[in-house]
């Protein structure tokens, strides 16, 4: 299915590349937008995944990215912290374009980010405590005891302090995600990326994961970017919602703006979940 141009509705106008930036200079640090993606393209062999993504990530808020399977949400997220190089386009993090950076420069930018992978991606040859102190071992000169204190402090805040000596294989899916979050938070990142954090969780665990993301954003003041299919989660915790379809952002806005959208595709995508009802916006 290909989106027709008349289906693409501008909800707030900010994602429209022609009008979004206007006279703004994206190389200047913006008070509201911490990350700005401009005309991002990416192909794998003959398959074009991103076809000119334009997206703004709001500082200190929970930014949700929704979209169907295979639309390139994870690919977009990996671009944000330089795990993939785009074919063309720009990604400005606090006004600095990360696309032309080499590995050394990217590593400095990556320290601003924390990433919670879909299936946690904990190092299975290490214990939980070794997983959590991994970023500290690599990027600080703290003693092992201090690192462990920080790790257990973080594990305690996320309600999994008793699992420090266990290996990831001994934990449940929800516990693994909490440990992954502790590992991502231990270096105090400014931006936290979550790749489908509620996948594979039951409804109660999903609510717990949502609360965890919300609490983390509130307590640590981080900018959160969450990829999700789960519409209940999206509308429960998302401050700002953007929809990726057919390789471009087709709608973006606050919860209320999204709920007033007239985009046929967006309405169908969201309403099919049964979790959210649209306001009637018919003329």
């Amino acid at each position: 299915m290909t989106l027709e141009s008349d289906e693409i509705e501008i909800t707030t106008g900010e994602y429209d590349p022609e009008r979004r930036l206007g006279a703004e200079d994206p190389t200047q640090r913006h008070e509201r937008w911490q990350v700005r993606v401009v005309r991002l393209h990416k192909s794998f062999d003959d398959h074009q995944v991103l076809r000119g993504v334009d997206l703004d990530i709001e500082r200190g808020r929970i930014n949700m990215i929704i979209g169907g399977s295979g639309q390139g949400k994870s690919v977009l997220m990996k671009h944000l912290m330089g795990l993939l190089k785009p074919d063309s386009g720009h990604i400005y993090v606090d006004g600095i374009d990360v696309v032309p950076m080499n590995e050394y420069e990217l590593n400095e930018i990556r320290k601003k980010f924390g990433l919670v992978f879909q299936y946690a991606a904990l190092f299975d040859s290490m214990t939980v405590e070794e997983n959590v102190i991994f970023p500290l071992v690599e990027h600080t000169k703290l003693g092992r005891q201090e690192m462990l204190e920080l790790a257990y402090d973080m594990l305690g805040k996320l309600n999994v302090p008793e699992h420090g000596r266990k290996f990831p294989a001994q934990l449940s899916g929800g516990q693994r995600k909490r440990v992954a979050l502790a590992r991502a938070l231990v270096l105090k990142p400014e931006i936290l990326l979550y790749d489908e954090p509620t996948t594979g969780l039951d409804p109660i665990q999903t609510k717990v994961a949502d609360d965890m993301i919300k609490e983390t954003a509130d307590s640590f003041g981080v900018t959160s970017v969450v990829i999700s299919h789960d519409m209940a989660s999206v509308f429960r915790i998302g401050d700002r919602i953007s929809m990726l379809a057919d390789g471009v952002i087709v709608a973006t806005g606050t919860r209320s703006e999204i709920l007033h959208s007239r985009s046929h595709y967006l309405r169908e995508f969201v309403e099919t979940s049964g979790a959210v009802r649209f306001e009637d916006t018919s003329p």
Partner: peptide, 21 residues
């Protein structure tokens, strides 16, 4: 086997994400 498993479970991406080559 070990590196292949790390690749498909995104552990290698996680290493990169923590600014480690």
């Amino acid at each position: 086997t070990e590196l292949g498993s790390m690749r498909i479970t995104e552990q290698i991406d996680a290493i990169t994400a923590f600014a480690v080559n």
